[in-house]
Design a binder for these strands. Sequence first.
DNA 1: CCTCGAATCGAAAGCGTTTTCGTCAGTGGA
DNA 2: TCCACTGACGAAAACGCTTTCGATTCGAGG
Lengths: 339, 339
Amino acid sequence: MTTIYDIARRAGVSATTVSKVLNGYPDVSQKTREKVQRITRELGYQPNAAARGLVTRRSMSIGVFFQDDARMGFRHPFLHDIVASFQDVVGESGYDLLFFSRTTPPNAPQGFEARARHRGVDGLFLLGIPRTSPGLPSLVRSRIPVVSVDLDLFGPRASWLSSDNIGGAKLAVMHLAAMGHTKIGFVGDRYGTKPGQDRALGYHMALQELGLAFRSEWVAEGDFMEESGEEAMHRILEAREWPTAVFFASDMMAIGAMKALRERGLEPGRDISLVGFDDVAIARLVTPALTTIRQNTRAMGEEAARELLDLMQNPNRPPRVITIPVELVSRDSVARIGG
Amino acid sequence: MTTIYDIARRAGVSATTVSKVLNGYPDVSQKTREKVQRITRELGYQPNAAARGLVTRRSMSIGVFFQDDARMGFRHPFLHDIVASFQDVVGESGYDLLFFSRTTPPNAPQGFEARARHRGVDGLFLLGIPRTSPGLPSLVRSRIPVVSVDLDLFGPRASWLSSDNIGGAKLAVMHLAAMGHTKIGFVGDRYGTKPGQDRALGYHMALQELGLAFRSEWVAEGDFMEESGEEAMHRILEAREWPTAVFFASDMMAIGAMKALRERGLEPGRDISLVGFDDVAIARLVTPALTTIRQNTRAMGEEAARELLDLMQNPNRPPRVITIPVELVSRDSVARIGG
DNA sequence: CCTCGAATCGAAAGCGTTTTCGTCAGTGGA
DNA sequence: TCCACTGACGAAAACGCTTTCGATTCGAGG
C-alpha cells in the first residue's frame, strides 16, 4: 500500500503538504500542488479510511439497521426501494452504507448504539425495526443522529418519517364512498405498528366524516401478508350482512383476500370491492388489478437521506417528523355500485 | 468516548494489559483479567474499529457492489434474498456489509478496486454487475478476495457462483417434452449475461438430446423483464407454425407473455404452455400459476459467503466456480398434450 | 535598509489500537 | 546458593493520516 509518505518522498515535500493537497487546503503553491496530484495519480494512491477516520472521528459511512423478517414478506421490495433512493442521495455526499448483520458472534457488541459506536458510523438509518426493540430507548437518548422509517422515534437527534398513512386511509375510504359504497370493512394490523395504527385511524376518521356506519364484524386484523389477508376476509364473510367493499392495510392482504373470495365463489372487484395499500409491483399484475394507495418510496428515501445529512451536519438542529404524501391508484378492484 | 487507557487507569494496569484481556491473550492472570473485564463492562466500552483496523489491517467488513438497475426489474428481490442469506453467514463471523453507493462525489475514488482499497474491506461480494463493467479486469488482477454471482470472474482470488443454468434449462425442456410437447420455443437474453447464455445453451442441448427440431422463428430475445417478454411472445406468434410451448429465461418474461397471449385471444397454459426461470414470489400468484425453475437463493447466498470467508482466510487457496442446483416447480402453466 | 504581512511549507503531536520484546519477581532443581 | 525458567506485566513503536502552529522566505511599503 502506498501512503502519503511515499508521495511526499517522490515529490520532495513533507507528508503534511501532501495531506494539504489531498484535502484542498489553500496554503500550497500551484506548482507543488500539481506535482503532488500527478504523483498521487501515478502511484494509484488511495487514502486509508481507517487512519483518516481515526483522526477526523468521522467514517463517512452511515449505519443501516434493516430488519426484513418473514413477517414483512412483500414489504421487502418496498423497503429496499427506499434504501436505494436513500443511498443515491447520501452517496453524492461521499457516504457509503454499512449494513449491520442480524447475526453476530457471541462476544461482539450488541444493540443499536453499541454497534454504531463500534463502527464509528456518522449516522443511522432504521428500517423495519419494531417499536418494541430493546435497544431503542438507549439509542434515541444518545447523540447519534438517526432517521427511521415507519417507526416513531423521539430523542434529541432522532427524526422519523412515514407516508401519510392517515390521509392515505381516508383517501381509500373516500374513493370507495365516491363509488357508491356505504358498507366498508377494514383489515388492519395485529402488531400495533405505527403505520398500521394510523391506517386504522384514517379509516375510522373517514367513516365518521362521511357519516358511515362502523361495524366491528367488518373489521379484522392480519400481519400485512397474503395468508393473513385470506383469513381476515373469511372472517369478515362470516358476518350476517356483508360489506360491499373492504380496505386493506397492505396490498398483499388484499391479494390474499382475492383468493378467499374466489373460494366462496365470489368475484373480487365485482361482488366485493377491494382497496390495498403500498402499490407493490404485483398490484397491477393480479386479476383484477388492485386499486391501492401508492407510497412514494423514492421520495421517502430521498427525504430520509436529506434529513439525516442535515442532522449530521448541524449538531443542534432539532429532529423532525416527516410525512410523505401518498396517492390513490385506481385500477380494477373497485366496482361502482348503487345509483 | 472511553478508551483502553481509561480502563487501564481504573484497573491500575497498563493499556497493553487491557488490550490483551480484550483479545484473549493468555499472559494475563485470572485476577487482573476479571478486573479488567468488569471495568470494561461498567464503562460501556466499545473498541474503536478504525484504530483497530489501522493496526490489524483488517476492517471486519465486506464490501458489496450491488447493481440493480431498472433492467434487473424483478430479479431485484431475487438478489436481495441472496444478500440476506449471505449476510447471515458472514455475520456469524463478525462481518458487517459495506454497500458501496452507486453515486459518488466527483473527486472520490472510482472503480471496484480503488473503492475497496479505500475502505479497506476484507473481501468483496458482487451482484448484478454486468460483465462489461470497466473496473472488472483490474479488480480480478488484484489480491482482493472476491466472490460474484452470475458473473464469470477469473483471477487469482476471484470465485464465482451461479445456479445450474444449463441444467435448469434442460430440466424445463425435458419437462415440456415429457408433457408431450415437441415444438418448443425459447425466449432468451439480449445482453449476453452469463446466465442468459447458459440457459440458451441448455435449451439447445436438450433439444438435441431429445431429437427435437430447432426453429429460429421460435426463439426471441428480451431483457428479463415483463414488457420484453410480451414483445417476444408477439414476435414468436408471427411464425407461420406456432410452438406449443415456450421456455423463458425469466419468470417476468413469461408473465409478460401471458398478457401477449390473452391479447390474441389465446389462453396461456392451455393453448400455449409456458415455463419460466427463477421462481419469483409472484410466479405462484399469477393465473395460471407459473411452472418454473426455482433458483435456491438461500443456498446461493450461503455458499457465496462460505467461499468468500474461506478465500479471505487462506491467501493461497485457489478460486473456485460454484454451481447451485435448481429444481423444477410444476404448476399450472404447462398443459399435457398429444397421446 | 528595515519592517511587516502574505505566502508557503514542515515538525510534531495526536487519534486508539495491537504487538513485539524486555523486565522483573518468583519458583523449582541442582 | 545459584541458575534457569516461567508467569505476569509494561514500554514503546507502529499503523496512516490530520491539524496546529511555528519557521522561513519574499516582496512591498515606509
